[in-house]
Design a protein around this nucleic acid. Structure first.
Lengths: 344, 344
DNA sequence: GTGAAAGCGCTAACAA
DNA sequence: TTGTTAGCGCTTTCAC
């Protein structure tokens, strides 16, 4: 038979209301008494529901992960991997993960998750410049973590160090002899686009070059736009094209192959290690989306459980020259990080 | 203020104990009295917790979706899209989706989901030949749907019509003049692999050809294996290579490009429309993973709510000749389904 | 079948 | 800080 508040009161020589207060935390209650009550329950029936405070009872042991539903997102394994990383951590602390698909103009699924009190906290896997999801969560009394970078200092956030990475790779490109570097990127409404853009400019300056020597082409949202961007860069004499992500990179490679242009080098500022390059030699910044999701879940877990959490977390990256597969197969696919580079 | 058992008793001129019995069903209670009580609540506060039987109270309005965590799965946007399809339907009926990442040798996350009673039902997004997830669920008293095909007739399942599709595409390849067709596929432990294999053989027979005229290479689990498979097929004089999925297809195209082999046609038995082919002309069976996830969620919803559900559901496909992008861009990316085909 | 009354497990108000 | 007491919402027992 399960313990009740009365059996405890009798066993400890207290009144049932004192025990009630000890457990609920409400009202005035002595620290020593509280200890006695908790110790008694823990030693006699550690599984007891009584140990769970009314607040704890309302805990769901679920976290919510919001992933974008539309367009470019579907091409990138980033979100899937981020989600699985979060699942991985959640599993380790016996939490579960609820997913919702949202877009900036459609956040109802997120709203419903909060309204129905289905989760103890939320992870947003993408940050937009003016993000309705973040605006909504700020108003609610629920912990949340944003994967990505936002200006707002009040928002707990975790991100790959896009700016530093982009700077490092860009200046590296000049080091190995590039003369005219082009940058092609996506939506300016995505914070990452801006971060990588800034990092790119940092790199150009660090290499002692002029921004005038570069060709910048943003808002390349469609394949047509990428096609035009590449055409423009070739016309203007770029010897290297820096792509902001895997997807753009795969399209750029395709464009170059189609026009049989083999004298232009390619780099990507976001390489998740999913082989979308068909083995072509590409400079890249290698990030791990799984880790991002896992760390985000860890931060959220700490936030939920009132442990100290930094407002901003940055994860690292690797600078990689991916060798052509023909070569790397012979050498058992190991990666080479020395600053040599061969034309395609 | 929420209705209580007492307010109802007063309103209906009954004692609170009678109302209690009417709602709990326990003890002796008149059918007419029961009706009166239920009718009163339904008309005054249909949302009331009192209407929910102890069993109904345990409903979570969550469904669980299990996606694979490892290896090949990460390359395929299939599972992400399937998941989003399920989210989409869930949202429309005010359910939520819990994700777990599982593998055949690691189904703890799934077990925990059931043990903790976090969900009213489960969708498995992949069927293995001897699937521990399915074996586990069969023992539990919880509705579940398998996306994929399983032999077991007791299992509710939904799948793309892999066999018919594979048959149709294969026989079509012979129709347009292929002489020696190779098949390259993944793990024999995956039911889809077997289905496509059978469909391929059906197609060969339907075209009046001998299986001896084909080259079959299964268990191509690694890039190295694919490399060897392709090499072997070229050596044996294949004029067309049929790939079992998008990923294998992209690797095969890469291999062919590397050896500058332009006389071998390529087809894929699973094309999700995510552009992994770099615009190369490929025969394909086009499926929609979002729809699969959405329909699976719909079936599960019906199962949970005791509506009639077919044990087996098959979704359709399109047979497509994807044109080279160079050409399709000019023609605004429309797809061509006439039986013409150009060598790369 | 129904109702009165007692009881259970908890919270809340208030006195000390 | 603790105990007393009242009360809430519900179930169960028992008499009719």
């Amino acid at each position: 038979m399960a313990m009740t508040i009365v059996t405890i009161a009798e066993a400890l020589g207290l009144s049932k209301s004192t025990v009630s207060r000890a457990l609920s935390g409400k009202g005035r209650i002595g620290e020593a008494t509280k200890r006695r009550v908790y110790d008694y329950i823990e030693s006699h029936e550690p599984e007891s529901e009584l140990l769970k405070s009314p607040k704890a009872k309302r805990k769901t042991y679920n976290i919510g992960v919001a992933i974008p539903t539309f367009s470019d997102a579907i091409h990138l394994p980033f979100f899937q991997r981020c989600l699985l990383g979060a699942c991985d951590f959640a599993q380790s602390v016996e939490y579960n993960v609820l997913v919702v698909g949202i877009d900036n103009d459609k956040i109802q699924p997120l709203e419903r998750l909060i309204k129905d009190k289905k989760v103890d906290g939320i992870i947003l896997t993408r940050a937009l410049v003016d993000d309705r999801g973040i605006r909504f969560l700020k108003k609610k009394d629920i912990p949340y973590i944003v994967v990505g970078s936002v200006e707002d200092k009040d928002v707990y956030q975790i991100d790959s160090d896009n700016r530093s990475g982009s700077k490092e790779l860009t200046s590296y490109l000049y080091m190995v002899g590039m003369k005219k570097v082009g940058l092609i990127g996506g939506h300016r409404n995505h914070q990452v686009t801006l971060d990588r853009y800034e990092g790119f400019l940092d790199g150009v300056k660090a290499a002692g070059k002029q921004v005038d020597d570069t060709i910048i082409y943003l808002d390349a949202l469609t394949d047509i736009a990428i096609h035009q961007g590449v055409k423009q860069m070739i016309r203007k004499g770029a010897d290297c094209i820096v792509c902001m992500d895997d997807y753009i990179c795969s399209r750029v490679l395709k464009e170059l192959r189609e026009v049989e242009e083999t004298q232009v080098a390619v780099a990507t500022l976001y390489d998740t290690g999913d082989e979308v390059f068909d083995g072509t030699s590409v400079f890249s910044l290698r990030y791990d989306p799984n880790e991002l999701g896992l760390e985000a879940a860890k931060l959220l877990f700490n936030l939920i459980n009132n442990k100290p959490v930094n407002k901003r977390t940055k994860l690292g990256y690797e600078v990689i020259l991916r060798k052509s597969n023909k070569k790397s197969r012979k050498e058992d696919n190991d990666e080479e990080k020395v600053p040599t580079w061969r034309r395609l």
